[in-house]
């Protein structure tokens, strides 16, 4: 075979080999350029990673007005396969007009995550959990909660995240 002809055939074969799978794949994907070009799996889980404040739920609470100790477990809802739990924090209760005005939490608050070993969470709440108008006999359901001045550090899949002076409002037990 003439080298020149062979060169042309080889060049043509290159073009065909490159184009055929692309054209075939494009037709298989309904000739929809967007579905052909964009990633199609695995990114949905990033939405709602930490949930919204409204997604927080509480459980296993103890709230002792006599001793001034509070123990709460709060769970951040997440679209991933784990929840973040703030657990067992305690502090001093301050009263206003015979009712609980607000609670100052201890400096170190242990924050834990469930169902994963990849998530490490540590935090500090230096002003605390604000509780409005709770009187003796009231339960945690009666509290109007919000957190303020929270410094939260997290390590998630090797990424370190630090949130300073975080305010979490409208927490509904």
């Amino acid at each position: 075979m003439e080298p020149k002809v062979l060169g042309i055939l080889l060049s043509l074969s290159t073009v065909l080999v490159l184009l055929f799978p692309l054209v075939y794949g494009f037709s298989v994907h309904g000739r929809d350029l967007q579905s052909f070009m964009l990633p199609r799996e695995g990114v949905d889980g990033l939405d709602g990673l930490f949930g919204d404040p409204g997604d927080i739920s509480f459980g296993d609470e103890s709230f002792d007005l006599q001793t001034g100790e509070i123990e709460l477990e709060a769970t951040f809802a997440s679209d991933l396969d784990f929840d973040i739990i703030l657990t067992k924090f305690s502090g001093d209760i301050y009263y206003e007009d015979g009712k609980v005005g607000w609670i100052e939490l201890e400096e170190e608050v242990v924050l834990e995550a469930s169902e994963t070993t990849d998530f490490k969470l540590h935090g500090e709440v230096d002003q605390g959990l604000i509780v409005d108008a709770v009187g003796p006999g009231d339960t945690v359901e009666d509290m109007d909660l919000y957190f303020e001045n929270m410094d939260i550090g997290m390590e998630f899949l090797g990424v370190e995240i630090m949130i300073e002076d975080y305010v979490m409002e409208d927490v509904e037990p």
Partner: peptide, 16 residues
């Protein structure tokens, strides 16, 4: 491509 342990595919790259 892996995002948080999940494989992510780009069809055009598969064929390329």
């Amino acid at each position: 491509f892996m995002v948080m342990g999940e494989a992510m595919e780009v069809p055009v790259l598969n064929y390329l």
